[in-house]
Write a protein that binds this DNA or RNA. Sequence first.
DNA 1: AAGACGTGGTG
DNA 2: TCACCAAGTCT
Length: 353
Amino acid sequence: MTPYSAALLEWYRRERRPLPWRGETDPYRIWVSEVMLQQTQVETVKPYYHRFLARFPKLADLARAELLDVLAIWQGLGYYRRARCLHAAAQRVVAEHGGELPREPAVLRRLPGVGEYTAAAVASLAYGVPVAVVDGNVERVVSRWLALPDDPSTGAGRRAVRALLAERLPAAAPGDFNQAMMELGAMICLPASPRCERCPVTAWCRAYAEGEPARYPVRTAAKAPRRRLHICAVIRREGALLLAQRPAEGRWGGLWELPRVELAPEYDPAEGLRAGLRAALGIEVAVGAKLAGLRHAVSGESIELRAHVCDIVSGEPAALGYAAVGWSASPEELPLPTPQRHMLAMLAIQGGS
DNA sequence: AAGACGTGGTG
DNA sequence: TCACCAAGTCT
């Protein structure tokens, strides 16, 4: 146990936040929390964690469930592939591992949706296997600890971070060390303005000694988001709204939405919407007034989402470019992408559904 | 190996 | 309004 680890662990045991999964020993629950926490903040995860485990208390419950029920719990949390993978992995654990989550990182790693981080997290937190986790927090803490000159997301930086951790991970308490590193990154060693005055390990921190810890980790510049225009159709019939389910693969896979087209900038919006609905649903529509609009971002894109009222001129909706289509009088009960949920709320406020 | 994949908080 | 980023994984 190095002095750094001792100081870190002592701080962690004193200052750690009481989180719902803190101190959890059930490997299944630890796994669920780690998957939900991928690229997702603690406060966002909390309610989903409780709802998910109330609905699927044991791994076997999840394995038995319908995918749509899993997606219904997951809606709004994002990265929906995680839900599909969690469901598929649970079924595989039942089929191939007797219903018990494996303890070896290499075996865990073969489950869908379990990458290097999650395998290490489950192995170390649930089973005490001495393997280090590397997430965004750990990359930042280690980059500052050693004042690493390389971007930790590139080859040289990755190797440097893992080499340091392999050397310093205390074999007696790998789970606590891992959680302590992440907790330090989340509470003290913050990206923009680290709270060094409250940090237990400044004595060993090179970035602190240099005087400008926020310079680390070194990052290569990100590209500007591409701007996109999406138009969705509000088509009503007898008090119901036409909804379509997206294909299982890709963005918002398996979720429902108002039929939507993505427009290239050179197209006329109304003409593009008509052509898109012809291709995706096999219907001819007349495009009416714009009812509402909003802007949202998804990785690498800034999307303006507009809704236009439309009337079907000919044809009956068919699931050509979608997994399914249907008329719904209560679309808010379906699993929807969050921007679609916002859009439906705006439409309801304006004119009812 | 660069890009896709969601959403929400922060400054 | 916008850039950045969060307990990453997959292709």
